[in-house]
Design a protein around this nucleic acid. Sequence first.
DNA 1: ATATTCGAATAAATCGATTACAGTCGCGGA
DNA 2: TCCGCGACTGTAATCGATTTATTCGAATAT
Lengths: 349, 349
Amino acid sequence: MTTMKDVALRAGVSTATVSRVISGTAGVTEDVKQRVEAAIGATGYRPNRLARGLRRQSSMVWGLLISDIRNPFFTDTVRAVEDVAHAYGYSLVLCNSDEDLDKERHYIDVLTAERVAGLLLTPEHEDRTSVAAAVEAGVPVVAVDRRLRTSTVDTVLVDNQHGARQATRHLAEQGARRIAVLLGDERVTPHRERLKGYESALKSAGLPVDEELILRAGTHSAGAAESLRAAMLGTDPPDALFISNNQLTSRALPVLDGLGVRVPDDLLVACFDDLPLAPFVGGGLTVVEQPTYDLGRRAAELLIDQLEATAGIAREVLMAPQLIVRGSSRRARSARDRASGASPDRAAP
Amino acid sequence: MTTMKDVALRAGVSTATVSRVISGTAGVTEDVKQRVEAAIGATGYRPNRLARGLRRQSSMVWGLLISDIRNPFFTDTVRAVEDVAHAYGYSLVLCNSDEDLDKERHYIDVLTAERVAGLLLTPEHEDRTSVAAAVEAGVPVVAVDRRLRTSTVDTVLVDNQHGARQATRHLAEQGARRIAVLLGDERVTPHRERLKGYESALKSAGLPVDEELILRAGTHSAGAAESLRAAMLGTDPPDALFISNNQLTSRALPVLDGLGVRVPDDLLVACFDDLPLAPFVGGGLTVVEQPTYDLGRRAAELLIDQLEATAGIAREVLMAPQLIVRGSSRRARSARDRASGASPDRAAP
DNA sequence: ATATTCGAATAAATCGATTACAGTCGCGGA
DNA sequence: TCCGCGACTGTAATCGATTTATTCGAATAT
């Protein structure tokens, strides 16, 4: 591996001069500059990023800590962050925390030891978090999708309450009177907010909030299927269902299939999160589409801001999700309607 | 940030001794070891990974270079690699090459400059590749999902030919006589192999290989939809369709919907790649499921092998995909069949 | 002609860990 | 008693780039 010393030797200058040429610092004769650049070209020299990072006390790497890349919600976000990072010359270290506080702490430790220039993460918990350690170590931090109560950091959020309200109101407008919600782990803020949105929409529509219609998936993976089945087999089953994320959707659909529940004839359905095949499930799944790519892009841009200026005020960006109405939430239709049923309608923003 | 010097000072020893305690080198008195460990605990010291990497000439980081994390095919693979990396104390730098040779070369440069301990990638091209540069720089490399002709590196592949053959044979067995294939970019080896598997299955079934039934999606994104539409509107349309990857599936389904083609009554359909909602599209999409997680796991394990021993023989691991038969490929059924149509059957391996 | 100034380039310190080499100490054998 | 050896521990060089302090030389001022 050729080093700066080799280049310096070949160009007949000192390493200091080579360094100046590379970083574009002023005060180098055109003649010398040419010689150095020729030497770099001839040797194919690439600066050792570890050495540079050690000296500068910061690497050209960002840490991105999410709960699980397998969740389709995150893939676009990750891609967006990588795009922005790449545009500014940074690389991205990807870590999966699996909703596990110990793993989160471990990764924050590692990333800090790696002297990452910045850290983006979806915090596992609002209070008990190790983010403070990174902040104290002087690492710029941006929280994505979830709020942090402890530290004051830049945050990018989706307006979950708004999204849930839109979906629930839409179900009500389609004539549903007993709208159930299949709800994820309430320790996670987005789910709590979606519940709020659901309740607020019910109130606006003049419908009662019935605890029996709030189907909590709980922590074990079978919980969602069980509570949904119980509700559908109960004496007064729901006539509409709002599912609060994509994973629950995958769990709920086979249950409905198994019970022979017809969508939308027996049950109107709307879900949080769009998925690649959602337009083709039945007459199309009605979904609340989250701006996942933009979420990542804005987060990365906030990080860039922090890196360029030291604008220390904790900013909060709220992004609007969008209701996409498809067949699963359209009340029993005539044959004519059905023919054009697959084409989606975007709701007004 | 506390450094090794601080720890040494506090424990009343030299940095050399601290280093020895941390790396577990033999020859440190129990008494001294205790003191050092106490000092580490008290200060919360974490070794600077940049300094360590610089000195050791290798960081505890792997590079993972794929074409696009948004492709669901990759997410499980990435997760698997990250799991193995984490288990062995490595971090993962994620890069998206977008099927772009320049981007690939750029990232390989960066990762080499970052002194990554190893590199996993899905090569964009069999011959014109910059992988050689990394190999020469002494970086262990593992190729994932695609073969490299130029360099001799460890490789993990899916048996695409076998998967395509299975799917095509299955369609033939269901009574299809004009089986079309919707084919992705043939410069990419997996697609070429899937075409081979398709052709081989046709021959085995005693069916002719008809060039008109090979629908090439081409490079522009609209190509797939166009050629499929043309084929379905032709004089002698296909009675079955094999789609060679998940992205083409998303493009093909709206076309079929738009033309009013009923699946499976008018057209049997089988696709490469499973997707979260595939079981719920129509009576379920028949798919060839790739062992994406295991693909990443095996690749990472090969890398570990290279890092631990310098076993230099280029190994090749071939993994079997699996046909999952669902409703989209089952020939027109009775009402009774339809009721249980959503339950998937796994084909024998 | 000499002192001063300014710009360009170099020498050397530095970042924080690892490690080759050197030094110290205690103990057993000659 | 003295030498040698092994077991610890310390000193200092090293990794490769950046950056501060310094030198050098030419141009300008006096």
